[in-house]
Design a protein around this nucleic acid. Structure first.
Lengths: 223, 223
DNA sequence: CCGGACCAGACATCCGACGTATCGGCCCCA
DNA sequence: TGGGGCCGATACGTCGGATGTCTGGTCCGG
């Protein structure tokens, strides 16, 4: 195995074993390189790789630190990876969202605060009559994120965040600019909010399912 | 932004835009470095980072290639990331599995082949009366993987694979060595198989839920 | 006491050289 | 002529050192 890969494994080992804990500072590059028995250049490759997936946080002029290792932070890397997927797998991603999102909505039902419901409602109302694709994407993202956030499961939240990042959503909405599709989707958003307000978990779950399924069906019918 | 990060973005852009397609070979390091306007060392850091998450595949003496970009391959990186999570989030991961796994089992119900069912059955039967933790983990992993594989959704498959990798599962099973917990879990495996054989999706889904919930409950009751 | 200049430390980037694995063509030997 | 091994070209792997740039803390003057 290459020395760089060894270094990645060793650093991973130090973190997993607890020798390095979240927030800890690593020895400076030259020392760590000597310690692991490789050159500073090769070590930098390892550090850079771990930095890309948010395991390490390097600050020029300061030092290299272990991140908080929060699920949110780590799964954020998922978003980066998802961006590489080709359009032909968007339906598979949507199918997974169709599983997770209703469940998340049901989980959020008894937990979401009235203030948050008000905020989401206001956000829907703020959308003008002729929204741009960018506005739709941002609104859609914020709406679902707000609900999932209230599910109380940070792994679930990060996963859905990553799976339906800006790229994926933009792909979907780009195809949804037809008038009726947009208005129907926004209507479904309102229905989900109403069910949450009634604390009716089963209705909220069903509306979430219907919402995703309708998007799915729309995508399937238009090549 | 650092030149290396720029390089990562540029290479990502080349792939997402279609200029580089799966299987394509990149220009050699020195050329690509000149093209992107940075040194070979810095470029190597970018390539190494993208290689860690399976976007690129570097072969010494040959060249650097874009991977197949299959969902399976890309989400495989998820497993690496998940390994870093601390034990206190294992319940959140399990909660997500509890959502995904029953759905995957239901999806697999009409699709899984008799041959695959036989294979999984044989594997369960092959487990001795005093299995080691390693054997239990391997068996558990293969059982669920076999079912999820038959769901027909490669994103779902990869996601569950990544979420419940060896590390996570080992953590769970390490706490499950008590006699009755093991036998009960294995019994649930058999029940899931039986439901699949009957092509009873609702029963299969419920057994899968019960299966995960019981593990969850067990973990929750033992600090 | 406060603010700005200064300085040491640590990461960022680059260069050039050498090691090593791979591939493919050339040559030799049946 | 067909096959197999040798060998060099090619490209990644690793290294050491030099220099730039940024950050944080210290020290001094107002």
């Amino acid at each position: 195995m290459a020395v760089t890969d060894e270094a990645i494994e060793k650093i991973k080992g130090m973190i997993v074993s607890g020798a390095l804990r979240p927030g800890d500072r690593l020895p400076k590059e030259s020392e760590l390189a000597a310690e692991l028995g490789l050159s500073r250049n090769s070590l930098r490759e390892a550090v850079r790789a771990l930095s890309l997936i948010r395991i390490l946080d390097v600050r020029q002029g300061d030092g290299t630190y272990v991140t908080s290792l929060d699920p949110q932070l780590l799964l954020e890397a998922l978003s980066f990876v998802v961006d590489f997927h080709r359009d032909d797998t968007v339906l598979e991603f949507l199918a997974v969202r169709r599983i997770l999102e209703p469940a998340a909505t049901a989980l959020a039902c008894p937990r979401i605060s009235d203030a948050e419901l008000d905020r989401l409602q206001a956000q829907l109302d703020a959308l003008g009559p002729e929204p741009s694709v960018e506005e739709l994407v941002a609104c859609d993202l914020e709406f679902h994120r707000g609900i999932v956030q209230s599910s109380g499961n940070s792994v679930l939240r990060s996963l859905l965040d990553g799976l339906s990042g800006p790229t994926t959503r933009a792909r979907v909405w780009r195809g949804l600019t037809e008038e009726d599709a947009v208005s129907r989707t926004l209507h479904e958003h309102r229905a989900i909010l109403a069910a949450l307000r009634d604390r009716d978990a089963e209705a909220a779950r069903s509306w979430a399912t219907v919402h995703i399924a309708s998007v799915e069906q729309w995508l399937r019918s238009t090549p």
